[in-house]
């Protein structure tokens, strides 16, 4: 693939689990086995009960657009060459929120509460970004 020039995620011992999952087209999130809290972004301890008994679960990859914006100008420097692009907050069916890009979509058709599904986009050998597209069914 062409050389990818946009910022890549910071890989830590914690985020590596998530990004390794994405490379295998699995969208992971955490679940606290002590209190049942659904956790994302991944944390070192449960933000409700401070428990360390966290497990990784696989999301079905479906949710709704909570809100979004299509950036035409004023993008971060690295993204100036890829405008316009859509950034969105997605409310996942499992009960957490994540940020991503909406792709494979006419930007004029975007709206809040639109159902979307994950579309894995490999950008380097190591990193596959979980993006979202309008749900197909």
């Amino acid at each position: 693939m062409d050389e990818y020039t946009l910022p890549l995620p910071l890989i830590t011992t914690l985020s590596k689990v998530f990004w390794d999952g994405c490379r295998e087209n699995k969208l992971l999130y955490q679940h606290c086995k002590d209190c049942g809290r659904v956790i994302f972004f991944p944390k070192h301890l449960c933000p409700d009960c401070m428990g360390h008994n966290l497990e990784w679960l696989e999301s079905q990859g479906k949710g709704r657009i909570d809100t979004f914006t299509v950036t035409y100008e004023g993008a971060p420097p690295a993204f100036m060459g890829v405008t316009p692009y859509c950034v969105a907050i997605i409310r996942m069916d499992e009960g957490y929120r994540m940020m991503s890009n909406i792709v494979e979509c006419d930007f004029d058709e975007l709206e809040c509460e639109m159902p979307v599904e994950v579309a894995f986009v490999p950008v380097t050998e190591e990193i596959t970004l979980p993006k979202f597209r309008p749900a197909r069914g």
Binding site: L6, P9, T69, A78, F79, I89, N101, C112
Partner: peptide, 22 residues
């Protein structure tokens, strides 16, 4: 978040878009 937000081109400007949109 450097892990889960910056790779998608988020910015303070995008935040303003988020808030106004919703």
């Amino acid at each position: 978040s450097q892990e889960y937000e910056i790779p998608y081109g988020f910015s303070q400007l995008a935040l303003a878009g988020f808030l106004q949109q919703r």
